[in-house]
Simulated scan of single mutants.
Amino acid sequence: MDKTIAFAAAPLLVIVYAGLRILDGLDGERGPGPAWTTGHLAFLAALFLFVPVFLALRRLAGRGPFATGTAVVGIVGAVCSMAQITIDIVVGARAADHEAMRGMFADVQSVPGVDVVVYTVGPVLLFLGLLVMFCRLAVARAVPVWRAVAVALAVLVSLLGLDALPAVGLLLYVGLAPLPGRRGASRAAARS
């Protein structure tokens, strides 16, 4: 897959998920139903695309231990988020109504460790990886500072909750798409 596609498609799919989430909530409840499932499938695809994004960012940052560690942190966050979204899709497909979903989510989250790994701490690692990687790349002058600022703003806005996802996706798109040029960037990152 062309890496530039992942850099553009991942944030765009976050925006698609955010839009479908808004549509799904128009009746006062979210899920189960087509908007729930389609939105979550879009977000799952976005999370899969963040893996090649982190691998490309690692190369852009010079492939050293710091870049590798940061990429691993981001990918672990993406995997934890993938687990969460997969659970959401399965619960949405199995539940007859919103009340049944609530009970299924309570059962899943009562499993020791699931809440921390899949719902609270784990997914944050995706954003932490993006933030650290883009700050490093900006300091090394491998990407323009405005890209790092857009990613940092996306991370900060994400703290507002899921209702802020349209802005998060847009800011990620500004920061990520298109893939920053690689010529000379790896050398600049390696020097820092």
Rank of each mutant, 00 (worst) to 15 (best):
I15Y: 08
L131D: 08
V155I: 11
V79H: 03
G64W: 14
G62M: 14
W36T: 01
L162T: 14
T86G: 13
G19I: 14
A142Y: 08
L153N: 06
A46G: 13
D115N: 14
V108T: 04
F54R: 11
G39Q: 09
V121M: 11
G161C: 14
G122T: 03
L170R: 04
G181C: 02
R21Y: 15
V157K: 08
P123C: 10
P178K: 14
F50Q: 10
I87W: 08
A142D: 05
H98F: 14
D2E: 11
C135Q: 00
Y119A: 03
I85Q: 13
L153W: 04
A67W: 09
R58L: 05
M104Q: 06
L128S: 11
A190N: 05
R182C: 00
L176E: 00
L60G: 01
V111C: 09
T120Q: 06
F134E: 05
V145A: 15
F54D: 08
L26V: 08
E99Y: 09
V151C: 04
V168P: 01
M101R: 05
F105R: 12
L128R: 02
Q109I: 02
A61P: 13
Y173P: 06
A177V: 09
Q84L: 10
F66S: 12
P52H: 06
D2A: 10
A189Q: 02
P123T: 12
V139D: 00
A100P: 05
P11D: 09
A10R: 08
G28H: 01
I22Y: 15
S81N: 07
P11A: 11
L47R: 05
G103W: 03
A152K: 13
A9H: 09
G74P: 00
F127H: 07
L57Q: 01
D107R: 01
F43M: 15
V145D: 08
V124M: 14
L12K: 11
A35D: 07
A8Y: 04
T4A: 11
Y173W: 15
C135D: 00
W36Q: 09
L12Q: 12
L126R: 05
V14M: 10
I5N: 07
Y119F: 14
D97H: 11
V53D: 01
L49I: 02
Q109R: 11
M101V: 10
V116T: 07
A78M: 07
E29Q: 13
T86E: 04
V72Y: 02
L160W: 05
P178D: 10
A6P: 00
